[in-house]
């Protein structure tokens, strides 16, 4: 038996909206410690890793480990039927072929349940090592979203360079070129409005803007985003989802063959 209840159901709605274009399907791996998902996009150049801890839910029970194969477009259709203020409960029997989603309105006067058909998905798990990065940048998630959206209208790829001057995002295309530089800025009173650059050594890497833009669909989940960069390694883009967990994106850099 698996059961997970979250009062703030809108978080689940936002999570699925953030992921569904990048990964069409994947396994929700549930265990006594929580719910995780690891999935690659169809071209395998980016990886999404979602962790929702058991103690982040209002109620959580999982008697045996299960991999529930989810089609995210279909899950999104069902979650669109939940109100933003609804409490959402996920339920499945052991070895079930459906996942039940129950939505309760805030004043308990409307209760609905939907069964999502589960899929059998073969997936391989990749080990992502904890490592020190050359540059780590924490910035407002809305700022990151604006930068990648603006640059996507100019070019296809972005060169991200981190130096002691700051972090520079550069692109070029048919209309011309664009450079946006962010400096370390801890003056805003609210921590979520600060930009914090932790530079161990200068680094510059090029990425496809289409994916970086796609990652910013997670903006509604967190006020800050963290970008981590090391030469020749994937960029690591992380959103903390309150006390519930995190969603992490990895994207391979563009390289000269």
């Amino acid at each position: 038996m698996f059961e997970a209840r979250i009062t703030q159901g809108s978080v689940l709605k936002k999570l699925v909206e953030a992921l569904k274009e990048l990964v069409t399907e994947g396994n929700f791996d549930v265990s006594s410690t929580g719910l995780t998902l690891q999935a690659m996009d169809s071209s395998h150049v980016c990886l999404v890793s979602l962790t929702l801890r058991d103690d982040g839910f209002d109620h959580y029970r999982c008697d045996r480990n299960m991999a529930m194969g989810i089609h995210f477009g279909n899950l999104s259709k069902i979650l669109k039927c939940a109100g933003n203020e609804d409490t959402i409960t996920l339920k499945a029997e052991d070895n079930a072929d459906t996942l039940t989603l129950m939505f309760e309105s805030a004043n308990q006067d409307r209760i609905s349940d939907f069964d999502l058909k589960l899929m059998s998905i073969e997936s391989e798990h990749l080990g992502i090592p904890d490592q020190d990065y050359s540059a780590e940048i924490k910035m407002p998630s809305a700022e990151y979203q604006r930068i990648v959206r603006d640059l996507t209208s100019i070019g296809d790829t972005v060169l991200i360079s981190a130096t002691k001057e700051g972090i520079k995002f550069s692109t070029s295309g048919d209309v011309g070129t664009a450079n946006i530089t962010l400096r370390h800025n801890t003056t805003p009173e609210k921590p979520e409005e600060q930009t914090i650059i932790d530079l161990k050594e200068p680094v510059a890497l090029t990425f496809a803007l289409r994916y970086l833009n796609n990652f910013s669909k997670a903006t509604p989940l967190a006020p800050q985003v963290k970008l981590s960069l090391t030469k020749d390694l994937p960029i690591f883009v992380e959103y903390q989802v309150g006390d519930l967990g995190n969603v992490r994106f990895f994207l391979a850099p563009k390289i000269d063959d």
Partner: peptide
């Protein structure tokens, strides 16, 4: 030419 490696070339399969 500019290319992109697969995620599996950066992270080992478990």
């Amino acid at each position: 030419a500019v290319g992109q490696k697969s995620m599996t070339s950066f992270f080992a399969k478990k």
